[in-house]
């Protein structure tokens, strides 16, 4: 009996766990190991057998001596927190708004807000690059010029008098428009799955829309808020694809537009040092995991994972 139960569990779990093990966990551990090798230029054969802590020493030295690091740290903190708030609350607001709409209109809006997530990073960044271009031909500048709000084109992300806020704003806007859609989809479907009767009952009791949201809807999607918050937090700490292109193309200030993830990977990739990149990733994952565990505990994850009821 017990043996066959184990067999059954293995039958269900092994494909997924095997894949995650081979392509996620083993590489992850290997990547942590690579952080302790001088791997560069992809030369696996020559460097993978050598153990060294030079990558960590290098990163540590850089972080304590580089005059631009304080900018990077500030940018990372501001960018991560503000974008996280924007993504979670914005996603929630979008989900609520589309929830209260008629379905056909709602679908159009949800599709619109989903577009950034479906667009290739390079194309999406390109569009924003021209949006914020500091020339009269930039989308934003040309619009504001025509409306008479400004009388000469503004370099939003590079004009020193507008920094750091200008660069931060661009980063947050560009990432925010991608980020909100994740929350939107999850929250919207969660709201849709709330039994209709609850909402109707509350309405009959005379609840206003605000009360309805606070008393009935938010409690029911608490788990989803946790999930999205943590997922987004971890994403924001580690991704840099959009930011890389925006700084590379010069639409934001080089250092006020660089987050920590971008900083270390730039450092590692301009000279092809994968060892340094792996070391940096290890530090990132340590920070991310700690923040993730803290938020899981704070947000009460345990209560949300009840044991299965009627196991036979």
């Amino acid at each position: 009996m017990n043996k066959s139960r184990l067999g059954t569990i293995l039958f269900f779990l092994s494909p997924a766990l095997a894949l995650v093990l081979v392509f996620y966990i083993i590489p992850l551990i290997l990547a942590i190991y690579i952080g302790f090798t001088p791997l560069r230029d992809w030369n696996l054969k020559a460097y993978l057998g050598k153990f060294t802590t030079q990558s960590y020493q290098y990163l540590f030295y850089l972080l304590t001596h580089d005059p631009d690091v304080s900018k990077v740290v500030k940018t990372t903190i501001v960018f991560t927190t503000v974008t996280l708030v924007v993504n979670v609350l914005g996603g929630l607001a979008l989900a609520l708004a589309t929830f209260f709409m008629e379905e056909r209109v709602s679908l159009t809006y949800r599709s619109l807000w989903l577009l950034p997530r479906l667009t290739p990073v390079a194309v999406y960044s390109l569009l924003w690059y021209y949006f914020f271009l500091g020339d009269a031909s930039g989308t934003l500048n040309s619009l504001l010029l025509r409306l008479g709000v400004i009388d000469h084109p503004v370099s939003w992300g590079t004009d020193p008098s507008l920094q750091p806020e200008g660069s931060w704003l661009i980063l947050i806007v560009v990432n925010g428009f991608v980020g909100v859609s994740f929350g939107m989809i999850i929250f919207y479907s969660a709201l849709k799955s709330i039994p209709r009767e609850h909402i109707i009952a509350a309405r009959i009791d005379g609840a206003t829309t605000l009360q309805l949201i606070r008393r009935v809807m938010l409690p029911q999607i608490r788990w989803h808020l946790v999930y999205v918050t943590i997922w987004q937090l971890l994403s924001l700490l580690t991704t840099f694809a959009h930011i890389f292109l925006l700084t590379e193309w010069g639409v934001v200030d080089r250092w006020w537009g660089t987050t920590w993830a971008l900083y270390v990977f730039n450092e590692a990739f301009t000279t092809g040092e994968q060892g340094v990149a792996a070391a940096a990733a290890t530090i990132l994952v340590a920070i991310g995991a700690v923040l993730g565990i803290i938020s899981l505990r704070l947000l009460g994850f345990k209560k949300m994972m009840p044991e299965p009821r009627g196991e036979l």
């Binding site: 996620y24 590489p27 690579i34 971890l234």
Partner: peptide
């Protein structure tokens, strides 16, 4: 069961770019 679920979501903290080097090493 619960620990594994937690572990699965925390995996996301590892940046894909860094993972790639190792996945490629295994491929080689």
């Amino acid at each position: 069961r619960r620990g594994l679920m937690e572990f699965l979501i925390l995996l996301h903290a590892f940046p894909g770019v860094a993972l790639l080097i190792a996945v490629y090493a295994i491929y080689v």
